[in-house]
Design a protein around this nucleic acid. Sequence first.
RNA 1: GGGGUCGUAGCCCAAUGGCAGAGGCACAGGUUUUAGGUACCUGACAGUGUGGGUUCGAGUCCCACCGACCCCA
Length: 821
Amino acid sequence: MAVSDEQYDPQALQVKWQARWETLDPYRAGEDAGDERPRRYLLDMFPYPSGDLHMGHGEVFAIADVIARYWFQRGYNVLHPIGWDSFGLPAENAAIKRNAHPAEWTYANIETQATSFRRYGISFDWSRRLHTSDPEYYRWNQWLFNRFFERGLAYRKGGLVNWCPQDQTVLANEQVVNGHCERCGAEVVRRELTQWYFKITDYADRLLEDMDQLGGWPERILTMQRNWIGRSEGADVRFQIEGRDEPVTVYTTRPDTLYGATFFVVAADAPLAEELCAPDRLAELEAYRAQVAKLSDIERLATDKEKTGVFLGRYAVNPVNGERLPVWAADYVLSGYGHGAIMAVPAHDQRDLDFALKFSLPVRIVVETGLPDPAESGVATPGEGALVNSGPLDGLSKTEAITRIVEILRERGTGDAAVNYRLRDWLLSRQRFWGTPIPIIHCPDCGEVPVPDDQLPVALPDLRGEALAPKGVSPLASATEWVNVDCPKCGGPARRDTDTMDTFVDSSWYYLRYCSPGYEDGPFDVEQVRRWGPIDQYVGGSEHAVLHLMYSRFFTKVLHDMGMVDFTEPFVRLLNQGEVINQGRGMSKSLGNGVDLGEQIDTYGVDAVRLTMLFAGPPEDDIDWADVSPGASQKFLARAFRVMAEAGAASAPGVDATTGDLELRKVTHRTIDEVTRLIESYRFNVAIARMMELTTAARRAIDTGPGAADPAVREAAEALAVLLSLVTPYVAEEGWERLGHGSTITHAGWPVADPALLVQESVTCVVQVAGKVRDRLEVAPTISGAELEELALASEKVRAYLDGAPRKVIVRAPKLVNIVP
RNA sequence: GGGGUCGUAGCCCAAUGGCAGAGGCACAGGUUUUAGGUACCUGACAGUGUGGGUUCGAGUCCCACCGACCCCA
């Protein structure tokens, strides 16, 4: 049978090579301590097992796989593990609906995804697989919690928290997006609850400072984290309140405007409002609070919203000039920011001005900006200028005034410079079942007692179906036998903590567990982490900018302080892939524009789908599935397959390529050179375009050139197979085998371009007159500037545009000459 | 309102400050084919969102504006 008659049959190749890979196990990381190969650790953000893999997974795992396979070809010892982020609410909701256990749904989905991953040809080291819902994994969440507790980094406190009425649990600040639950989209309300927190605020400065190690991260993610942490410098100022011993501290970024304060505002929902309220005004405050409680933070802070508030019948005293400032409660001040109270400087802050104008409070200019009087214009002047009406600060600039006022406050003991953060501590308690139990026992006598390490894990009780239905407290509370235990300290009757941990705890350190997945003496083997860590390349979505990516950085720093890891940042480089959308919009059931990954694979084959994902554009860009054509990808792969098969049938391995067709050899080596650079800079779409050109050149050589048996054709086909192996492993394996090579192409070795073949013997030099192209010259690439200038000026075509001697000649040998007449 | 990213053929995308086009889709034509499809070959299509500036030379650098998206308000 003629080779060219053979059909490219992607499904058959998938069956054949998937089975071979199972046997050959080519993607396993080398564990031998004497292994001298340079190590690389590549990680994809692990999936949540919500069902089968979807198009988004198809993209992110294809991208990371190119990098992994490139590293394999380069001879590195590659760690590329996979696992599942398998605790979480969807499993619990499914279990309630089906009267089942969350584990059933979870592990069934994991198996479905594992099967799909294998078919999708991702080069995972399956021996390191982990699931965060396994007791052997979450045991170490608890162990780590104990360490955090010992160090004062895990603590319990009461306060207003974000409550999602849909999911019936509290949420961390990071999980509230524009006042809505990041998971389900329900509007979040405030509740007063006692909850566990991780003290991430202790690490705020280090989370900022260490960003200088993150040159391999997208700038926008760093900016998002910087904004989220929200460090600002200013001053704390203590105001005495008439008729009260204890002063109230406010934080301000503009202490220089202290003389411009004309009233004082406390957050309506802060306990302080009640404390400061005159007895005869309490009823009014309560009524107002009820009104405020209905609003989200976003609504409260909206600048276009009419200001509201109530006077509390009290006065604060300005520490610098003794002025009496009326104390108001209002909703535009948040109890969570600073100290929940502010000094209002209406002339220079728009929100304060809106409030002042609404309630006829005085406006005093203390910064001369040259702009119209805010009291008249209604526009505050937050800019800089010389201080006025400010006693000792008069005439000073903003910076000078800030320095001076801080000195004054410090001398009088009524304030000091202060740093404030927007970042809040990480609320980690959750009132749901399918998570890691918090390993604390509450004893009436001993208080909060950690479960001793040797009694971990605190395993989840066996609850299922209706028992998991949300009721505002954790389902664990109803597992009486599980809850009631003896205190580990005094042996008296005590109760387990019934909340579970935020699942972001699980993902904060999973990358370390992969280094020694079966380790039983700790969360990870310190030595193995020293070998592999930190992660050289992390790949995942930007939706985790201030969630997982920040939490994981925090965990890493704590573990560093504990002496368990010797680096301070977990992810050296970060790549955020775009989303796969359809017809200009995200895929969704309601829009009916969903595309199923499995169906695409069934229709076009794994290789064509992967190729389509990578060829669509730069990895960071969104892919609109309506704009791409997997059918065309499949056709290209058929072409490439035929080239490899025909070359394989016409010659044997080991022929001397130097005797082959020179033109094709040059294309091959130029392609190798360019693809190498393009892969290293993650420009996969362009790299693939080069592979297409090489395929076309080889095709032409076979059909109308030296023919399939020419050594240059073999050289081109072999290079093509290895280049393609990063993107389309199935057709590459088959091609490699047809070319007469054994086993697997995974470690065939990255081809090296011969520099001699990259040199061109002539290049086209463009000759411009006044920037317009007037002639082209074929010249040697080594031509000197002077020689080239002479040639260019001698050109008839050029002389036609010249009128006498040129004023200036710019020579960029060998490609360009520009003559300025 | 502040900050960021990005605007290149009908579409997706390329182009170290140096000839705007590498690759693909779609389109048109040719060879093969009974025909369609496949395969192979060929072709047409923009002057880079708008307006300034820097430069011998700007898609690329700077400024303003318009539009899209993202983040913080």
